[in-house]
């Protein structure tokens, strides 16, 4: 798999299709694992989608006392393994991005797995498949790099030069699973 989940917050129209679609994924048990939130509804209708970054060295896995969070060979960070998870919620506090969800009833953590049954066959995850605004995309690594370059160039045309330390503010969010 050489594909990336690519997020562009400004494109989001807040329809929450991605959340409805997330419930449809295999093994998601009709519970969504992604987020769509308003930046500030009082001010505007800007919303943003939020998914797991699939970190290469995930903090959630590092803080898990049961060693329950596993990474697949493709690099997808899976939900805590149900048999190992002791339900301590360390992962939800360790994750710098506030992604893992916890089910108190069933005593287990669950998180975005990029629709593993789809993405392992190179089929786009449900959220990226249905997102009507392309705020969530499942694209090639090269395409992602191209989009990022374009974005940086656009800012340069605007006369805004990224400085060391804030250059990440000039490129859109991207994350996902790829092999270099």
């Amino acid at each position: 798999m050489n594909k990336i989940m690519y997020l562009e917050f400004e494109r989001c129209i807040g329809c929450r299709s991605c959340q409805a679609a997330c419930r449809e994924c295999g093994d998601h048990d009709a519970k969504e694992r992604n987020y769509v939130e308003y930046v500030d509804f009082m001010e505007s209708r800007q919303t943003y989608p939020m998914l797991c970054m699939q970190c290469k060295d995930p903090a959630c896995a590092r803080v898990c006392p049961a060693n329950a969070i596993q990474i697949t060979e493709e690099g997808v960070v899976l939900s805590a393994m149900e048999e190992k998870c002791i339900g301590c919620r360390n992962c939800t506090f360790g994750c710098p991005f506030g992604i893992p969800k916890f089910d108190f009833e069933e005593n287990k953590m669950y998180k975005c797995d990029m629709c593993y049954d789809r993405s392992k066959h190179d089929i786009a995850p449900m959220c990226a498949s249905v997102c009507p605004s392309d705020a969530i995309r499942f694209i090639d690594y090269d395409e992602m790099m191209q989009l990022r370059r374009k974005r940086t160039q656009m800012n340069l045309i605007e006369g805004k030069k990224p400085q060391e330390g804030n250059k990440w503010e000039y490129v859109p969010e991207f994350f996902g699973v790829y092999s270099d």
Binding site: R16, S17, A20, A21, E24, A124, M126, S129, V130, P132
Partner: peptide
């Protein structure tokens, strides 16, 4: 059982709104 996006429908390319998904 559920729904699967129709990626090759030229008007919508598999996209769906939450009503469509459900």
């Amino acid at each position: 059982r559920g729904v699967e996006p129709r990626y090759d429908w030229p008007v919508t390319m598999g996209k769906m709104c939450p009503k469509g998904v459900t």
